[in-house]
Amino acid sequence: MPLPEPENVCEIAAIENDADFLSFIEHGPSGITFVPERHGESDDPVHTAHAGDFAKWIKSNDPQTRVTVLPAEGRLIRHSSDFWFPLVYLANDVALPIYLNLVASYLYDKMSGRLRGDTSRVHVDARYRDQKAGVEKRFKFEGDADSFCQVAEKFELKDFFVDQAATD
């Protein structure tokens, strides 16, 4: 009997008191910064297993985008078919839709050769400053890869700013 699929979650919400992100954005950085996180009972922040590969992929496929991978105590291997993208801080020169399209393109590359019925869930977490509203926001997605790519497609730059205005 097939088990039920977990539901997809896609949300954008204002974040408050994220001292690390505020400190990051106030230093006027550029590009995408990969931030290690603590997982489980470990005290040490680690990167996800895909983080290094994804960083290298961006450097190779979109060389004008600067990628910084903050140091971590290791890489976490989960052994699921999920794609766990790292927590990223987006500087003001990288709009969220651009990042989402990078993720979608990476997924397309990595999933080439998949068989009928192969599914992967995608976990994306990005923090950015909504420059129009002047507030910090978090984009979070947890769901299947095909749904993520549809979300990324809908985030056309023009529409994104309209949507942002609507949510402000």
Partner: peptide, 22 residues
Amino acid sequence: SSVGMTVSWFKCSLCGQDIDAD
């Protein structure tokens, strides 16, 4: 079943270097 673990780095099977490094 799946065992999750933390490792230091990933070695490239071809050149022996950190495969995530430039």
